[in-house]
Nucleic acid binder design. Structure first.
Lengths: 209, 209
DNA sequence: CTTTTTGCACTGACTGGTCAGTGTAAAAAT
DNA sequence: ATTTTTACACTGACCAGTCAGTGCAAAAAG
């Protein structure tokens, strides 16, 4: 057999179709929400027939779940990378946090629709993909929590901070600021936005430095 | 005019029905999203007939829009109140910011479902109530921006801060931290959460106390 | 070489159910 | 007397998921 090996070693036809469906689904769902987006729309935007969607995914919500997993996987990898690179370069934990803020901004800059969709679905309850979302959220937040904990252990951060809440707040800060940036002042540069958040992160807002 | 029968303070029967419908709609839509929530469900949860929904609101989306306006109105009032009270008591602008953080937390503590729903809809595009949402968002964020600007003018905050971005980031910080609190550690007290955010706000995370 | 078979990826008309919104007549509340 | 609510049957658009069938290329058979 070995049928698919006739084509290029990398991407099968199926793989390419799935990718097109992901891309179509992510923007439509970000704009309209999951329930308001029809499978017909997704198929049309992807340039395939409706049947193809069901040939590649068991259902509309399975498509969505795999989309979520895929996207948050990218984000988590990017955050880890940022933290590790800072560590390798001998940077402090604040530097690591700062690098992660930037990594987050880069991610959102690249995948704004995914970010939108993620935020919109994260705190919903009673939805089929709720558990998937929780797992996947925890992976991302855990990276930030890890850096905070190491910082506390190393005496760089006050041991009175609440790691879990602070991590959530930091994530929220970046998320909301970035979505605002993309929605309302898209002409601003990433460096600009990064600088504003750095200032806030390092407490250089009050007190004139 | 039929003002003869109007009670001052105005709890007509109609008003009460509307309120019941708001309350039913807000939790259902927070859980499931707008499109996945049916008018029949809303009516049932509110304990009224379906016809009553349409007697009181022109359509499902009009009901939702008025819900949004109503909710954000409450939040904005609460933030303003916090800022003004601090000013009257002769507090600094950091104190005002801190009071607003607390007001935000109190609001979210009281109306978690509304907050959920608001976050989920805020960055959507192409939706009927998009413009309503923008107006209403700006009102709330403007309160924070106002305090920041006054702080800069008074020399309390660095004049290098980006008011708009910083305001968005602060709102995001509180929003996400609070939703996390409600979703994952609801047993924590409001004071606890407030303390964690205050620390972050005042840059007392890095550097020993 | 040629014909036939097999398996994969995809197609799009169709089905059965769902749901926003309507119409109406009668009851309840003010 | 008027406003508000109820109960319930109904409509028509819309949509997730299905299924019989198409196109194609590689292998197997002749």
């Amino acid at each position: 057999m070995e049928s698919s090996s006739a084509r290029s070693g990398g991407s099968t036809r199926r793989e390419a179709t799935r990718q097109k469906l992901y891309e179509a689904a992510v923007t439509l769902i970000a704009e309209q929400g999951f329930s308001a987006t029809t499978v017909d729309e997704i198929a049309e935007r992807a340039g395939v027939a409706k049947g193809t969607v069901y040939y590649n995914f068991a259902s509309k919500s399975v498509l969505f779940e795999e989309l979520l997993r895929h996207g948050v996987g990218l984000l988590t990898a990017s955050l880890k990378e940022a933290a590790e690179q800072t560590a390798r370069a001998g940077g402090s934990k604040v530097d690591a946090l700062d690098a992660m803020v930037r990594a987050g901004l880069v991610f959102i800059d690249r995948y704004p629709a995914f970010t939108q969709l993620y935020v919109a679905e994260l705190w919903r309850t009673n939805r089929a993909w709720q558990s998937t979302l929780m797992v996947v959220r925890q992976e991302a937040v855990a990276v930030v929590e890890g850096v905070l904990r190491e910082g506390v252990a190393a005496g760089e951060f006050s041991d009175e901070i609440d790691v879990q809440l602070t991590a959530a707040a930091l994530v929220g800060m970046v998320l909301v600021a970035a979505l605002d940036w993309k929605s309302f002042q898209p002409e601003r540069s990433l460096d600009d936005v990064h600088a504003a958040l750095s200032r806030l992160l390092q407490g250089r807002v009050s007190g004139r430095v």
